[in-house]
């Protein structure tokens, strides 16, 4: 108990931002989070460029992966948003999906930082989606778009109440979209950190601690696998919710 201070688990320290790229990065507040975003973007471009370079009839693994990513998002856009409009928004959804996916997946590797585990980053992403959806809705329907907030077939007396509720519901998309991604990513990494600390602390106990330490290592191994699932699923959920919102904006009611 005396060593409580040195033995405490610092689960949130991993999310602290540090300036990257030495003095230049420090002077413009270029953090490791920004660096990871740049790396993610370069990795996505490299993945797509190298994947599609062979243009083989029978695709190799990388080409198959690139084609699968393209087809998944394309069918998601076409099916959810619908036909012609779906294709129009495909580049946006594709970019969004792969940016989030790479951000999530790279965080599983040691020494890498998960930029999607910061609520400010996910909030910026969801605000982008929200503003785009609103602009698209107003552009497609003009002032008629505001009838989106008036549910069909309600008594006139209830209209003010329902419109308020609908507006709150519409605005809550920003929060729910960003918090879902951020919370999932942060929770996973906190769990990894906690069980990782267990390994070290229990291993230091001596003979008595070896078994629980090994158990924690097993849990951490499982968590890494689970984290891969969550990373992919959350990127997918973010993309498909963007599609659903775009559908609502393009086709009112």
């Amino acid at each position: 108990m005396a060593a409580e201070g040195s033995n405490s688990i610092d689960a949130l320290g991993q999310f602290q931002l540090h300036p990257a790229l030495g003095a230049i990065g420090g002077s413009v507040n270029f953090t490791q989070s920004n660096l990871m975003m740049v790396i993610a973007s370069v990795a996505i471009l490299a993945f797509l460029y190298l994947g599609m370079k062979p243009r083989a009839m029978v695709p190799g693994r990388l080409q198959a992966a690139a084609e699968m990513g393209y087809e998944t998002i394309m069918s998601m856009c076409v099916e959810t948003i619908g036909g012609h409009e779906g294709k129009k928004y495909f580049p946006f959804v594709f970019t969004l999906f792969f940016f989030i996916l790479f951000g999530n997946l790279m965080g599983v590797f040691p020494l890498f930082f998960t930029f999607t585990s910061h609520v400010m980053v996910t909030l910026a992403l969801s605000l982008t989606v929200f503003i785009l959806v609103t602009v698209v809705g107003i552009k497609e329907h003009g002032l008629h778009w505001f009838t989106y907030f008036v549910p069909q077939g309600i008594p006139k007396a209830l209209a003010p109440l329902m419109v308020t509720i609908e507006v709150i519901s519409y605005l809550s998309r920003i929060i729910s979209l960003s918090v879902r991604l951020f919370a999932n990513m942060m929770a996973g990494h906190v769990m990894l950190e906690v069980f990782g600390s267990f390994i070290v602390m229990l291993g230091g106990l001596g003979l008595l601690g070896y078994f629980p330490a090994a158990l924690s290592l097993g849990v951490n191994t499982l968590l890494i696998g689970f984290e891969l699932l969550v990373a992919t699923l959350q990127a997918y959920v973010f993309a498909i919710l963007t599609c659903i919102y775009l559908h609502d904006a393009v086709h009112l009611h």
Binding site: I168, S169, L171, S172, R173, I174, I175, S176, V179, R180, A183, N184
Partner: peptide, 15 residues
């Protein structure tokens, strides 16, 4: 479960 929880809280936070 996670989705329902987030939706409920998000609306309340905005309100």
């Amino acid at each position: 479960g996670a989705r329902v929880g987030v939706e409920l809280v998000a609306a309340l936070v905005v309100a």
